[in-house]
Design a binder for these strands. Structure first.
Lengths: 222, 222
DNA sequence: CCCATGGTAATGGTTGAACCAATTTTGATT
DNA sequence: AATCAAAATTGGTTCAACCATTACCATGGG
């Protein structure tokens, strides 16, 4: 995947930040200056700035300049954390977040899930087992399982938040995961959840999800 | 707030979708065509497309075209819901989501909150009471209270998700809220939460938040 | 001395045209 | 019919100019 021009510029701007050359509240250099500095057209710089603005990391004021936002500094913290190498903290936070949300989703899904969705969940776990035996990569099956559950809750906001969360996970996944033990942990957890959902037992589903994520947490952070 | 050119174009493209002229998986008309059709420069069209791509609503392939994504169709669902006028459903979903997440946040915050943050919460509620008596608008105080709580949980992912959620809320707030009864509900709920946090009692905090959001739900959806 | 007022420069927003790069389509050749 | 090369289509990038808004500053009146 060749990155687009503006994406490399986004990275360069982030470097300026994590190298301390710029910090929260500061005004970015004018677009024309950045263009010369990075040896690209002003248009590409603008694309990068717009991408950052779309994520509320930066705010442009016509006639004034572009400022680094103080709110929503999570992604800045993230790039900082990446620089320091404290990626595990972020993983733990993501898991903590999931520990809060997903059991509740499972609870809702127990009442709302359709037979077709239940079948789809079973298919996913089947595929997981197959890939475990065939020593293939788990691909996105785990992610798909949890996303489908959010969908089964019947709440579009859940799905939306979850989609965003997946983006976060994709950012910082990669090295972790994909061991055989983790695959097994994932599968046994999913089976228990499906069992609870099939009985349409909300609190049992909630509990199954709770211990599932706890298992993941221990496997990943051991 | 005068909207930027590309924002109005994003809206126009969404209209094309919700009017059924385009649907999931379809290829968008070429940028040059859209530019003529909307009577804007191709560059502005490209800004709009990039904004949509940034949210994974659309995917561009050089030399081929721009396609509407099937995944992450939440925002499409949203614009559809808005078109039908089913805004209440969305509100209910957002509250259901908060009902899942926020009590857990309160639970975490009970252990992690700092005295300074606790003071800040008290100040917010004071301001709320003042504005209630002075018959002024609640502004963003309620939002600030809940955001600060997410911050007090000590988890940056929480804050991040919450910031995004606020964007959603801002989208669909406006007409609702702002009645005097709702202000009172908000304040009494917040006071109980602060009380529980001060005792550093996780399950009491969780419970206080649970009934607080339940109150909001009943007030807003009655 | 202060601070309004207006002009000027700096900065982001928008446009149009041209060209590059990747892909699809077309059509001629074998 | 299959294959390959040329052409057309489409998104990606650059450049140069201009518009709209804001900050800055010098000037002059209180």
């Amino acid at each position: 995947m060749k990155p687009y021009r503006y994406e490399t510029i986004v990275e360069q701007i982030r470097e300026l930040i994590s190298q301390g050359e710029l910090s929260i509240g500061d005004k970015l250099p004018p677009e024309r200056t950045l263009a010369k500095r990075f040896k690209v057209s002003r248009n590409s710089v603008r694309q990068a700035v717009q991408a950052l603005a779309e994520k509320n990391l930066v705010e442009s004021r016509q006639g004034d300049g572009t400022y680094i936002c103080d709110r929503n500094n999570a992604l800045l913290v993230d790039s900082l954390a990446r620089a320091i190498g404290a990626e595990k903290t972020r993983i733990r936070e993501i898991l903590e977040f999931r520990q809060c949300l997903e059991p509740q989703i499972a609870r809702l899904a127990a009442s709302a899930i359709s037979p077709a969705q239940l079948d789809r969940l079973k298919i996913i776990v089947c595929d997981q087992q197959r890939k475990l035996l065939a020593h293939e990569a788990d691909d996105l099956l785990d992610q798909e399982f949890h996303s489908l559950l959010a969908q089964a809750s019947g709440n579009t906001v859940m799905q939306e938040v979850f989609a965003n969360l997946n983006n976060l996970l994709n950012e910082s996944r990669s090295e972790f995961l994909q061991s055989n033990t983790r695959k097994r942990v994932s599968i046994t957890g999913h089976l228990k959840i499906i069992d609870a959902l099939e009985k349409r037992d909300p609190s049992m589903s909630q509990q199954a999800m709770e211990s599932h994520i706890l298992d993941i947490e221990q496997t990943v952070l051991n």
